[in-house]
Amino acid sequence: MHPIVDRFIQGQLPEPMAMALAGGALPVPAPDLLAALAHAILKETPYADRAIGALEALPESVLAGVVLTPVDPPSGLQIILCHRKEPALLEAALLNPALTAEIVEASIPSMPGSVLEIVLNNQVLWMQRPRILDLLEEHPEGEYVIKRRVNEFRFEVLRLVPEEVKQERLEIIDEVEAGHLDRAWAELPLPKEKTREEEEAEAESEELAAERRLLAQKPLLDEEGNEINLTLTQRIARLRTNQKIILALKGGKEERTILIREANRLIQVNVIRNGRITEGEIAYIAQMRTVNEEVLRIISNTREWMKKYTITKNLVMNPRTPLPIAMTHFKRLLESDMKLLVKDRNVPEILRREAKRLVEGKAQGRG
């Protein structure tokens, strides 16, 4: 290190020279100047403000040349990360071999959002200092994808599971082993934050939301009229979206009956893709007015299900069924059900009109 910088760090440099050095006015090599400025700023010396001004005034090209090789001492990287905003310069500093987890942790609050992903991708650093993940999540300029990946890393890499989650997990395993819960519960992953797709899938119209609230006030019944276990209902309500999606795909009859009432499209779709679902459940779902249209489309496109008259009838009579689907299948209805369709003011007018025309045509043919 340059003798002048060494004396400055040791506190042995006369004040006029120290002021000049902190202001960047002495002819010392750029790496040594960076070390002097870092000492002045991070040690909160009387020259700190002057040193910050000098650092901000240094050309980007000068600092870029310094960070191309390992910076010694690495504290110079911290003041660059905290007081400079050029993305290319910050990226070079974050990729410098001398960078430490302590420096990253201290610098994140000052970094612009554009470079946070570089920090997130350096697993070595945040595995040493998990607090880095918290700071990334709290950063005001952090994008949604950053915060989602932070949560994934917490659970999948660091296994940082909250104590209450651990306890609930043990309770679930105990209940599965005791035969009180379907085996699928034992395979649920740890909870995660909702993805953007999951959030969008939960959007629903005000009309459907009102109908769902009304249904929530009534006892929860399955398609045979049996009341669902309240404890199971409460347990499912505590699950995160990704857990509900997996439970919908693998769970038993009671779980499917509860989950098909969820607003989330992905959960509903996975319920009817469950390999254990019965035709009776499909018939029940086909007449539900709170299911997503995609669920009804999947039912209508499954030939084996549509061979069952009850499923076809429920699908046609459901006001939620897309009109093209209802128009395709309504002619299969029995005459008695066709007459009911004609009188049903909840279904589209064009469907009732076509049903009426068909009924009248058959009546004339008999005459």
Rank of each mutant, 00 (worst) to 15 (best):
R50C: 06
A51P: 12
I52P: 11
G53W: 04
L55P: 09
E56F: 12
E56V: 15
A57L: 13
L58T: 08
L58F: 09
P59Q: 14
P59V: 14
E60S: 14
E60K: 15
V62G: 07
L63T: 08
G65K: 07
V66Y: 11
V67K: 02
L68K: 11
L68Q: 13
T69E: 14
V71I: 10
D72Q: 13
D72K: 13
P73L: 00
P74H: 10
S75G: 06
S75V: 03
G76V: 05
L77D: 02
L77P: 02
L77R: 07
Q78G: 03
I80E: 02
H83Y: 15
H83C: 00
P87M: 00
P87D: 07
A88K: 12
L94V: 11
L94D: 09
N96L: 10
N96V: 00
P97G: 12
P97K: 11
T100M: 07
T100L: 08
E102M: 06
E102N: 09
E102Y: 07
E102R: 06
V104G: 01
I108K: 04
P109Q: 11
P109N: 10
S110W: 14
S110Q: 14
M111Y: 12
P112T: 02
S114M: 01
S114C: 05
V115R: 01
I118S: 07
L120A: 04
L120D: 01
N121D: 13
N121F: 10
N121S: 13
N122H: 10
Q123H: 12
V124C: 04
V124N: 06
W126E: 03
Q128S: 08
P130V: 01
P130R: 09
R131L: 03
I132V: 04
L133F: 03
D134I: 02
L136H: 00
E137A: 01
E137F: 09
G142M: 06
